[in-house]
Computed example of a mutant assay.
Amino acid sequence: MSRVIELYDTLHAMPELGFEEVKTAEFLANALKKAGYSVTTGVGGTGVIGVYDSGVAGPTLALRADIDALGHFIDGKLCALHTCGHDAHTSMVLTAAEEIIAQKLISKGKLKILFQPAEEPGTGALAVINAGGIDDVDMILGLHLRPLSEVPMGKSTPALYHGASNRLKAIFRGVAAHGARPHLGVNAIDAAVAAITAVNAIHLNPSDSYSIKATKMIADAGVTNAIPDEATVIWDVRSELNDTMDLLLERAKSAISAGAATVGATAEISTYSYIPAAHYSKEAIEVLSKAIVDVYGEEGLAPEIKTVGGEDFHYYIKERPSIKAGYFGLGCDLTPGLHNPSMKFNKNAMEQGKEVLICATKRVLN
């Protein structure tokens, strides 16, 4: 059995939720130390960073993998399962890290191995940033398994563009009243409906990809013959670009407040679960493109991909714009899809993914 598959089988059997990756972090820290890295644990909570310094002036390259599992309710019980490929990402980065040192492939600069916690809740990257985990990084590279519908086995895309996503929440406050005397109250449901209608009327540049839709509404006076004085609505907000997300949220907040005001209600508005859109450097894309060709040949270089999914990797670029960032998508015949408890893929693809990471590292640090 190959080393990368051996690591995958080990990590797959120890799934842990975000910021609870204690066993995983310990395992990774020990492996990095054994490989010859200087290791720091507890980065941003449960993150692990390994550093190899060549002793020669040069850039600092970070290879990042997410280490947390997903939470699934099975038979009414919350279970941690690796159904997004984070165990595969970690196995490829760790194996690459081991081979790079063993084969003495670095002749300048520093290599930083970043095992990031809590990608699924979208808070792990920010925790690592706030802990100073990437303060000295010049280039950061990441990767993700891709569904068969996007990239087949034997190919990889050098740039996987995720969109921005957000949740917009509004709590509408009216005035409670008896159902027989509606003129004495302000119906929070009316306010919520008016706000939903107002948000649906927002129109941005049609050449920009975006969507905003109400996905949850709660309003209950406790009985059916009373007017509720409170209602909550949540919108799912998505856009291809960060600037479009900012504009869409600004317009939506104005629409919600105005909609509530039409019936005499107020709205308390907040956002949460924000994930920024991807923004890569041409240099990083070129490094990954050449590395993919090194491994697969020209026929293995798949086109760049835009996906509606989100990834907190993009906080690294948003919070540290000077960093050159790249993120490739690995073809592995993955079915039926990510986050599915039945998710499966061709494990042999991890050998190719590991080699892409090694080739990319050589192009930056050798």
Rank of each mutant, 00 (worst) to 15 (best):
A192Y: 09
D138A: 04
V151E: 01
A191P: 00
A201S: 11
G163N: 04
G154D: 04
D190Y: 14
T215F: 15
T157V: 13
T197W: 05
N205D: 05
A198M: 12
A170V: 15
T197N: 06
I234Y: 09
N187F: 01
M153L: 15
V193W: 01
N225C: 06
A195Q: 03
A198E: 03
V175R: 14
A221H: 02
P158A: 11
I202G: 12
V199Y: 03
L148C: 06
Y210E: 06
T232Q: 13
V186K: 14
I218L: 14
P228R: 15
A176G: 10
I227S: 11
P147G: 15
A159W: 10
H162S: 12
E150W: 02
S209C: 08
L141R: 15
I212L: 06
P228G: 13
G179E: 00
Y210R: 11
G142Y: 11
G179Q: 04
T224K: 15
P206Y: 03
H203T: 04
D190P: 07
V193C: 07
P182I: 08
K169G: 02
T232G: 03
V175A: 10
P206A: 05
A221Y: 02
G174R: 15
G179N: 08
D229N: 14
P158T: 10
I218Q: 05
A192P: 00
A188N: 03
H203Y: 09
A192W: 07
M217C: 12
D190M: 14
I234G: 00
S149E: 09
V223F: 15
A214T: 05
A194M: 14
P152K: 07
T224I: 09
T215H: 05
A164F: 04
H183E: 09
K216R: 02
A219M: 07
S156M: 04
A170C: 11
D138N: 12
V175N: 01
R173T: 13
A177K: 10
D190K: 15
P228E: 03
P147M: 13
K216C: 01
A231V: 13
N205T: 01
I212K: 07
Y161S: 03
A191H: 07
D190Q: 12
D208I: 01
H144W: 05
V193D: 00
H162F: 12
G222P: 00
A188C: 07
H162M: 06
I227W: 05
G174S: 13
A195H: 09
